[in-house]
Design a protein around this nucleic acid. Structure first.
Lengths: 150, 150
DNA sequence: TTTACTGCAAAGGGTTTGCAACATG
DNA sequence: CATGTTGCAAACCCTTTGCAGTAAA
């Protein structure tokens, strides 16, 4: 667990005019300690020892997202997943989405591909009037565990 | 509306061992007549004149998806969206996802980018034991309409 | 001390399901 | 005709919200 992350996150939250309560710190800690995006349930479960409750997880994620501390990750099923914002982790990555169990894991794309994607983003912005905030290059398929389970 | 699409879809449904009922045809017609992925509500709404009901839309989408006729499109909010499978339309494309209103629209990526993405897919398959079914290169941002509304 | 935040429980909204009637192959 | 499919309504589950008590600045 990187304490620098906890502090940097707090800076963003207070800058946005919110309090950096123990509950919010707990959410950040849980996400910082995870190696993949977590569902709201997983966050509440792992933060239970710090007194985290599901409804507060939901409310805190709203604040943390608008403060640029966490990012929503879209998976396959309809349950929401979150991870620390890349601005905090300095670790640009993409996702492998299992269409069987819904789990989302990380992977990095080659620099050459990132460059090509950036170019495409610029094109879309200029030709379609769509203001791009983020690109996602995600791969849908079957994870190793689900393949083995068949 | 391309009648060939309706027929080809029916072939896949019957090949998968299901009946090509009027309700399923209606779903295919609705999606074929749309220029973007539709939510379950939108499908039911547009198919109402053909006697489509929401619960049947849900049930039929399950069958149509497993038959390879429709594809689930993951947006921003939690409502599910569907479009005709690319195998039927011969039109590979990607999506612009508005994080404001949730609407999803289509765009095509340059061939050069598609090639780079295919390469990355091959790498992941061989190195991470993840069996890729589909890649998505989606752009999240604010659509022209939502920008204007501010 | 002021006011944002939390926990609890109840409400909300989209999705799924049981059952009897119906339509398809 | 045998059985897959539909409509309706109730059940479900995830997410949001009201309120009174608590903790942060």
């Amino acid at each position: 667990m990187k304490s620098t992350t906890i502090v940097a996150a707090g800076q963003r939250v207070t800058d946005a005019g919110h309090r950096y309560s123990t509950g919010r710190q707990a959410v950040v800690r849980v996400l910082d300690g995870a190696d993949r995006p977590l569902t709201t349930n997983e966050i509440a479960e792992r933060g239970k020892k710090h007194g985290l409750v599901l409804s507060s997880v939901y409310r805190n994620l709203v604040v943390l997202e608008s403060s640029g501390v966490v990012a929503r990750v879209v998976g396959w099923d309809d349950s929401l997943r979150y991870e620390l914002a890349e601005a905090l982790t300095d670790h640009h990555h993409h996702h492998l989405v299992c269409v069987e169990c819904g789990i989302v894991t990380d992977f990095e794309a080659p620099a050459r591909l990132e460059k090509a994607m950036s170019q495409a983003v610029a094109d879309v912005t200029s030709t379609m009037g769509f203001q791009v905030h983020n690109h996602r290059f995600d791969l849908e398929g079957i994870c190793a565990k689900c393949r083995a389970a068949k």
